[in-house]
């Protein structure tokens, strides 16, 4: 069972959250892209084997959406790589 740190509630058990998957950057403006680039921005994922940024929704508590860094091989939650902030949370 993962223990996830919510900025509002503190360390809480995984079961209170829903994982929203890889943290993707905000959607680009479709008008500025080719059809292929637009489709890729919708569907493609880095699907990293190792440390990646992902979003969790604290749905069974405060309702906040937050970003954590987690290793997809060990499941260890860790601070993000130096100087790399997680991509902007979607509004």
């Amino acid at each position: 069972m993962l223990q996830i740190s919510c900025p509002w509630c503190g360390l809480r058990p995984e079961g209170e959250f829903v994982c929203l998957g890889e943290a993707v950057p905000p959607r680009p403006d479709p008008a500025a892209l080719t059809a292929g680039e637009w489709a890729a921005s919708l569907a493609n994922r880095a699907n990293i084997r190792g440390l990646h940024a992902e979003r969790w929704w604290h749905v069974r508590s405060c309702g906040r959406i937050l970003t954590i860094w987690r290793d997809t091989v060990t499941h260890a939650i860790a601070p993000g790589p130096d100087g790399t902030a997680a991509p902007e949370a979607a509004p």
């Binding site: 998957g21 890889e22 890729a40 493609n44 994922r45 880095a46 699907n47 990293i48 084997r49």
Partner: peptide, 15 residues
């Protein structure tokens, strides 16, 4: 995804 990334290819996959 991990192997294809070595060819610069990104795919619509989640593991």
């Amino acid at each position: 995804s991990h192997v294809a990334a070595k060819a610069g290819l990104s795919l619509p996959l989640v593991t």
